[in-house]
Nucleic acid binder design. Structure first.
Lengths: 226, 226, 226, 226
DNA sequence: CATGAATGAGTTTTCATTCAT
DNA sequence: TATGAATGAAAACTCATTCAT
């Protein structure tokens, strides 16, 4: 039910804001995340978001001047967190560990913040009207950098020669699928990532598939392991 | 702009329908697919669908009694085609060929019918209000059957032991991602599946990644081929 | 279900009309009576009337050029029959017999043609937009004539001095009530005029009440009776 | 134009309603009564009701969520008042006085609230879709009780043996007729209950007819009378 | 005679937003 | 800060009527 990070972690700039203002903004963003991810931008209504946030429509519009403003704030609220994992991919680390770590982080984000995943998916599927600029600049820069990292690993013979971009896309696609299509997954398996066992099984299956796919032995035939 | 199969491929049961009726129904379903996949159910308007189909709102409502009816018909129109590829997975075939074939079929569907893919994604992400029953029965049955096929291949030592369900999910996720997130992909690569070269490159990358992931050599190092 | 007189009795001018035309006009009028009396003018739809009459909307509009035309024809179809009983009040007859006969005729019309009664009530309650002219001329003339008859009976000492107009209104009100408010009557008694016993009981009660009300002994202490 | 009791008489349960809310609700109910009684449910339009109530359509829908809700509220607003007179029939009172009083109350209600009468008539004639349950429970109970009272009077030899139910129906029919069919009455007499003289004449005629009908002398030939 | 196709005007309803307090 | 009241624009639907065959 809580948003990305919940209310504790106020990702929004808190400068010059009273305690109550900050609290309400977060209540709204959480409610908005729920509604927008469930119904999409047009399907969500200001009234329901306000109700969910426990305040009047008018008051909500005191904090955010329009429905679009709420939507944008919600997206922004998410985006940083959503893209963070990729940043941790460490050029100096062991490729297998690094990739496995990244995959698991992404799956855990799907487990913990499925609504954020769906909100993001929705936005992109509708043509990314709000975040296209960010995708084309920040995200592109980040992805290029990490492609370079992978490329280096490949050049160093640490993994099979694959197109790093498609590798990244595959990781994104696979991990986010468990959040975005959770209803379908539940229909087929009776379970989803909220089930700890299923989560672990998913992590193993996906990690193993992708790592082996790029020529990395997985799970590592551990000699000694931490 | 064309729907799944366009107007050439008569939209399912044409029984007892005049030429003009069939033509208009197809015009509507095509237009609706475009709108619904672009804007979602609530974001789409009957007026725009009608305009796109080249007829008056009233006339559209002469063919489909409500917006929801159009939506459901559009979904139904797509669904069969959308789920068809999996059926072709042949237990008697060579696992590598079969899986590669399935993956390429799925990617080509993403290339040719990205709107269908997005419509389906949208529906499932909103909780599959219309098609959940189908997912739980028809799709489940089909998936179980094909899991059995893969299981048999594994038991026969033809591929690495992986959970067939997660393999299927991975294939779905990866292939559909190129349609559903095409805007993001275009933002990052400047290209998408409508580009023939990119399509081929994607097919190779994804097929290779997944097949190797399940322990199948790919591409086959055969001397003479095809 | 049948209209006033059903299809057998074509009250409409049949001049220069083919057999099939006449049949269809009557089908329409019957259906229209049902719909208009049930839903009122605005609540009724041409489509439902057509369906009820077993033909297409277009065909119906071939017979009657507009909804209003159907309505007017239906009213006219009824009106003559509806006002007929009063004409039978015979100045030369025995007042008690005459009045009792009139009351029973009216009650039987309510029993046999409740829809006609409701259609008429509806029209008048909405301000008689169509039939006001008739009320003000034909009906007024007729009522004045019969008031004269009653006046004569009173002058001849045959019944108590009452205002003939109010007597007529009372008869109309009471007898039509059993048709117009039949739902309420059924809610309170479990029965209505379609029940033969209830019909007879109603006739006795109403006749006795009104005749005694005007000072006529009823039922007649029959010496010999036909 | 004024509703039942107009705006002076606060519309039923006013609990927890601001002054302005109560005012507007009453404005709406008054306007709605006018429109619904004049045009019926389908003939009335929300737009006209709003205009009549002096507010925008949207604002009206802020108070009542749908046309049907307005209709039901209007009906409820009326119903209690409409059924009240019967409750006053006092078993301990003099039958003639009691019945005469009841008849006059009903006629005066027809004079003062003809629109309420027509709304009620309309509702019942259309099959009482909204109030049938009330008719079958509350009204039925009340009517049975009062039938008992009349029965007792009859058993005590105070009036002629008549079926109390039909007596009540006759009173309802006759008195309401002057409201419901006022257009017809005006067409025939040039006057209606809004004319004080005609009102009094009607009261006398109807009361005398019915009381004599049940064997009660009327008017009472008392010597001194207030 | 008969019908399917098409339409435009009207009606209900929704909803983001503004206003006043 | 907070809210109830109010609104206008847009959207889904309804329906009598017309058109073409």
């Amino acid at each position: 039910m809580a948003g990305v990070g919940g209310q504790t972690q106020s990702s929004s700039k808190t400068g010059g804001m009273s305690r109550i203002q900050e609290k309400n903004r977060n209540l709204i963003l959480d409610a908005a995340l729920g509604e927008f991810s469930k119904k999409g931008f047009s399907g969500a209504t200001v009234e329901r978001i306000a109700a969910e946030a426990g305040m009047s429509k008018s008051n909500l519009l005191y904090y955010f001047s329009s429905k679009e403003a709420i939507y944008n704030a919600t997206l922004a609220h998410i985006l940083e967190v959503w893209l963070a994992p990729l940043k941790t991919l460490d050029p100096a680390g062991d490729p297998a560990r690094e990739l496995a770590g990244y995959i698991c982080q992404k799956i855990e984000m799907s487990a913990n913040f499925p609504e954020a995943s769906r909100l993001f998916a929705n936005e992109v599927m509708q043509g990314a009207p709000q975040i296209l600029p960010i995708l084309e600049t920040d995200l592109k820069r980040l992805v290029q950098e990490k492609c370079g990292v992978i490329e280096d690993w490949i050049d160093a013979g640490k993994l099979r020669r694959v197109d790093p971009l498609h590798l990244i896309f595959t990781i994104w696609a696979t991990t986010q699928h468990y959040a975005d299509f959770s209803v379908q997954i539940r229909a087929l398996t009776g379970r989803d990532l909220s089930d700890a066992a299923f989560l672990q099984q998913t992590e193993e299956a996906v990690t193993s598939l992708i790592l082996n796919g790029v020529g990395l032995a997985w799970p590592p035939e551990e000699t000694e392991q931490e």
